[in-house]
Simulated assay, not measured.
Amino acid sequence: MEINLRKANAIQQEIRAAMNASREPISISVTEFEAGETAIAKAKAAFMTGSDKYEGLVSALYEIRAKVGAANEACGLNLALTRIAELAELTSHLNKVTSGSGLRLDETILEGKLSKMKEAPREGSGYYGHRDEAVSTGIFDEADVKTAKTRIDGMKREKRDLQDQILALNVENKITLSREAVGVLKEEGII
């Protein structure tokens, strides 16, 4: 059976949900009104049945995962995903420049504040009686911010284009499931 990469992703999520639902307990509580050995045997049989089901789901999941990984590499999808991650890191870094807190004080204002500090009396003039000893300022001017915003806009456009390519690749490229995997998935009602 052939499925596209997009469908393979959805199937993997359904398999994980089925795996979580198929977990049987490994211990039980037995009351005085029950036959202890019978209850244990019944719980163990349920666990073993669930265990076989779980192992089949795991096998199908990792078969799909391996084939999707190979298909992603073959069609270039891994490179597109890597570039998107790179763009996210670069955008995050450049957002520091555009955040506003990195904007520098105007040269005149900076010099005025520094002069005022030099001329201020030494004791008791600042907050809680302590003298101000520094002026805080960002390091980026308006041109730096504008350049960073332009670069971020370009990266956003590139990311959108890559996401469109990824969508197309996920729909166009297919993997083939083994008979065993198809059988497990049909038995579970996933396909």
Rank of each mutant, 00 (worst) to 15 (best):
A43I: 00
A17W: 03
K42W: 02
K7W: 01
R16T: 14
Y54L: 08
A18W: 04
A18F: 00
Q12S: 12
E55T: 13
Q12M: 15
I40D: 01
E14D: 14
R6T: 07
Q12F: 08
V30Q: 02
V58I: 15
E63S: 01
S29Y: 11
I28M: 07
S27E: 14
I26T: 15
R16A: 12
E63A: 01
A45D: 07
L61P: 05
F47A: 00
L57Y: 06
G36Q: 15
N9T: 12
G36L: 15
I28G: 07
A8Q: 07
R23A: 13
E37F: 14
G50S: 03
N9D: 14
I11P: 05
L5M: 01
T38G: 10
I11R: 02
I26C: 15
A8V: 00
E14M: 09
E32N: 13
D52I: 04
A41L: 04
N9G: 14
A41V: 03
E34Q: 15
L5R: 01
S59K: 06
K44A: 10
Q12P: 06
N9K: 14
M48F: 10
A21H: 09
S59Y: 02
R6S: 12
Y54S: 05
I40C: 06
S59V: 05
E55H: 11
N4T: 08
L5F: 06
A8R: 03
V58H: 08
G56K: 02
A10W: 10
K53H: 02
M1V: 04
Y54P: 02
E14W: 00
V58C: 12
S29A: 15
I26Y: 12
I28T: 06
Q13Y: 08
S51T: 03
T31R: 08
L57A: 01
R6A: 10
K7D: 03
E63P: 05
S22D: 10
A18K: 07
A41H: 03
R23N: 13
T38E: 13
N20K: 12
K44E: 07
E2F: 10
N20P: 13
I15A: 01
I26V: 15
A18V: 08
A35I: 13
A10Q: 13
A45Q: 09
A39F: 03
E32M: 14
T38H: 12
M48G: 01
A10T: 11
L61E: 06
Y62N: 11
E32C: 11
A10V: 13
Q12N: 13
M48K: 11
Y54N: 09
A45T: 01
I11Q: 01
M1T: 09
F33G: 14
R16G: 07
A35K: 14
V58F: 11
A35C: 15
I15R: 03
N4S: 07
A41K: 02
A43S: 01
K44W: 02
Q13P: 03
R23Q: 15
E24C: 05
A17V: 11
S51F: 04
I3V: 06
Q13S: 12
E37T: 15
I11D: 09
S27C: 11
A17H: 11
E24M: 14
S29M: 14
Q12W: 08
E32D: 15
G36S: 13
I40V: 10
E37C: 12
S29W: 10
K7L: 06
E2P: 04
